[in-house]
């Protein structure tokens, strides 16, 4: 994890973000810029325009310590403590029910789809 590679890596990522923000701004689109950046970066990595080695260090650092990057936003909860208190039942009931719905629907769908494909493959 050399300092040179870290600097080169963050330069590449910031350049991609710059292009994403500018493009979406020109198009007047509300699509999240970091997400477009992720798609662009995936394509550049897949087509080997950017080598994995040059960005490996910075990506590892950013992903490994991603939890810390959420901290300023999650401290922002204190601005909304009153709303969370007022609507705690709606918020927590929705989170619990919806999480279970998504988890089970998706897993059941996948089991069904994979099972059907494996059966076809076996025939």
């Amino acid at each position: 994890m050399s300092p040179n590679l870290l600097l080169k890596g963050i330069a590449i990522i910031l350049a991609i973000q710059w292009v994403s923000v500018t493009t979406l701004n020109m198009l007047g689109s509300k699509f999240p810029a970091p997400l477009l950046g992720m798609i662009v970066f995936s394509i550049l990595l897949y087509t080997k325009v950017i080598s994995k080695e040059s960005v490996n260090s910075i990506c590892l650092v950013l992903i490994e310590k991603m939890g810390m990057l959420f901290l300023p936003a999650s401290v922002g909860i204190i601005l909304y403590l009153q709303i969370i208190k007022d609507e705690s039942i709606a918020i927590f009931a929705t989170i619990i029910i919806s999480s279970l719905v998504v988890l089970l629907t998706t897993a059941a769908f996948l089991e069904f789809a994979l099972g059907r494909r494996n059966k076809k493959g076996g025939e």
Partner: peptide
Amino acid sequence: IHFLLGPATIALAL
């Protein structure tokens, strides 16, 4: 630090 969330999301491509 908050700003780095953008680059971190892009890094998920790896």
